[in-house]
């Protein structure tokens, strides 16, 4: 049921007379990818749950005007990335915390094992990722965990492939340094 192509899903949404059903299929197709993308950025399940619902509600509101030039997958990832980054900014503003402190609160979450199932090495990797600037973190996650092509990341983040490669390499080196230090 979730194996429909994006084109087919959009066609169903616009022309089947039952856009709600078509939208449900879109949610089912992309929910896990979007969830993990968000979760890796905000770490907490409850926050991720709020964000993913917000992402799909925004998608539903915008789908009527959506033109498939960029692809459904790219578009959803872009909404999700923006939502996650805005969420982290809001969090920082709400608590009047410097950015570093928000990162530290995320590291504490990893340390406290709330929903964390990995081993010590994976924990170290997560902590290393949290030391990266937000954009580098997004790029690293997309490439390392989601195994995306630079071309796809470029479309989502609207950044040149060259800049993304540089960003990813820089991030990977920093993580390597962090791991070797700890």
């Amino acid at each position: 049921m979730t194996n429909y192509s994006d084109e087919k899903l959009l066609d169903l949404y616009h022309n089947s007379g039952n856009p709600n059903y078509a939208f449900d299929l879109i949610v089912r197709k992309y929910q896990e990818k979007i969830y993990w993308h968000l979760r890796r950025l905000v770490l907490d399940h409850e926050d991720t749950n709020d964000l993913i619902q917000e992402v799909f509600i925004k998608a539903w509101k915008g789908l009527e005007r959506f033109r498939s030039d960029s692809g459904l997958f790219t578009w959803l990832y872009r909404i999700a990335t923006n939502e996650a980054l805005s969420f982290l900014k809001r969090k920082k503003r709400r608590f009047f915390l410097p950015w570093q402190d928000v990162e530290e609160s995320l590291i504490t979450k990893v340390d406290s094992n709330q929903g964390f199932t990995g081993n010590e090495i994976q924990k170290l990797l997560q902590k290393a990722i949290l030391t990266l600037p937000e954009k580098q973190r997004v790029v690293f996650n997309m490439r390392y965990f989601d195994e995306m092509k630079y071309e796809e990341i470029s479309q989502i983040l609207e950044t040149s492939e060259g800049a993304l490669k540089a960003s990813y390499h820089h991030a990977a080196k920093k993580i390597e340094e962090y791991i070797s230090r700890h």
Binding site: K123, L125, Y144, F145
Partner: peptide
């Protein structure tokens, strides 16, 4: 050293 990691999300 990263190459050896699994690349799975541990949550």
């Amino acid at each position: 050293s990263l190459e050896k990691h699994s690349g799975e999300t541990p949550f």
